[in-house]
Nucleic acid binder design. Structure first.
Length: 378
DNA sequence: ACTTGTGTTGAC
DNA sequence: TCAACACAAGTG
């Protein structure tokens, strides 16, 4: 589909502005329009950096030896984008991102800088409202824009981000336009706060147990994937033909109400169904070890919400263990606990399954309370 | 092996 | 908030 560009081709457009590959490389990285035409890229190169300091290495950073330029064309500095929210990728493609609450929300990668810029624009309008600062979108009042605004508002931020990342936004928008007349009275409009991070809303919907798996060493190892036994995969997580290789994104809610998103696909090479992207994060946060058991459930209601939980190997469901000594330090006026690895301390939590190592993680995150992001939630 | 997109930092 | 940079995670 997307034939990726030879990176050197793109990169050279950076350095040899005169070639002006496709018009997109006219250097306007700085806003003053005067400089660009006469003294293109060269003047824009940061003269301060010594070549040695430009030590980016790796895939997309092939050294461009400009065959004709007298300048040592070895700046492997990535080209800055002239668009807001757009960042260069090492392979010559472009990423789009937007920030919210001090967190970056990644909007995907794109072949064309302009596409990335448009993705940013859409996200900006969804995240910050109709008259957010954008790259292209003027604040017009056409009916088209009203429709798009309605479309945006009828989807959660996470959904919009999904569409952008999958490059399906325009299709979905068109689709909704086609349906526009049909259910104009907001039947489809979705509640904003669907993803409640904690408690309150998640009243006991009944769930059915789907299956459990005792995780193998490779499930929790460097392979960053969980193999779903074929029988269970095909029974509970059927893949549409065609999506098999590509996979789909599945959302699972854990006991804490946190939503985990995993890519789920079929690997032809190993003839197996796997959870890939996102899985290693789960392993890390839950501190899963080989032999532990992960469990999958689904709500029996219409929403078919998926759930994931885990328990330590052989651990009874609601394990209560003798409390081991806990080291406590007082630092900066706060008490900080240090729990030995493999400790079996149990905190008072909401019972069942989630146990044990969780306390370590909680304490850990207490110390470095920094991250905890749910992508574009709400 | 190659690409995506996250961790991180420093400037604005 | 934002982009630059480095590189680990993700993909197939």
């Amino acid at each position: 589909m997307y034939t990726s560009f030879s990176s050197s081709e793109q990169r050279s457009s950076l350095l040899l502005v005169s070639l002006n590959m496709d018009g997109s490389c006219i250097d306007e990285s700085t806003t003053s329009d005067s400089i660009s035409t006469s003294l293109p890229a060269l003047s824009a190169l940061p003269a301060t950096k010594s070549p040695e300091s430009l030590c980016r290495v790796g895939s997309g950073t092939s050294v461009i030896l400009d065959s004709e330029s007298s300048i040592e064309a070895e700046s492997r500095k990535l080209p800055s984008s002239r668009f807001k929210g757009v960042v260069p990728q090492p392979n010559g493609r472009w990423g789009a991102q937007i920030y919210e609450k001090h967190q970056r929300v990644w909007l995907g990668t794109f072949n064309e800088e302009e596409e990335a810029a448009k993705a940013y624009d859409i996200a900006a309008q969804r995240f910050r409202g109709r008259d957010a600062v954008t790259n292209f979108k003027p604040l017009s009042e056409t009916e088209e824009d009203d429709i798009e605004a309605a479309f945006l508002n009828s989807h959660s931020k996470a959904e919009i981000v999904d569409m952008l990342r999958k490059h399906t936004y325009n299709d979905e928008l068109e689709q909704s336009k086609r349906n526009y007349g049909l259910d104009a009275n907001g039947k489809r409009s979705r509640a904003e706060g669907l993803m409640t991070p904690f408690g309150s809303d998640r009243v006991t919907k009944s769930r059915e147990q789907l299956f459990e798996k005792t995780v193998t060493p490779s499930d929790v190892g460097k392979l960053n994937r969980l193999v779903i036994p074929k029988q269970h995969a095909e029974k509970h997580f059927p893949l549409q033909t065609g999506t098999t290789s590509k996979g789909v994104l599945l959302n699972f809610e854990d006991m804490g109400g946190k939503v985990w998103r995993f890519r789920y696909s079929y690997w032809n090479s190993s003839q197996s169904y796997v959870l890939t992207k996102g899985w290693s994060r789960f392993v890390k946060e839950k501190n899963l070890k080989a032999g532990d058991i992960v469990s999958f459930q689904r709500s029996t209601g219409g929403d078919k919400q998926l759930y994931i939980d885990w328990k330590a190997r052989n651990g009874p469901t609601n394990q209560i263990n003798p409390v081991e000594p806990v080291e406590m330090v007082r630092l900066f006026g706060v008490n900080i606990f240090k729990v030995p690895v493999n400790s079996s301390v149990v905190v008072a939590n909401n019972g069942s399954w989630t146990g044990k190592r969780m306390i370590e993680m909680e304490l850990l995150s207490f110390e470095c309370s920094k991250k905890q992001r749910v992508i574009g939630a709400v």
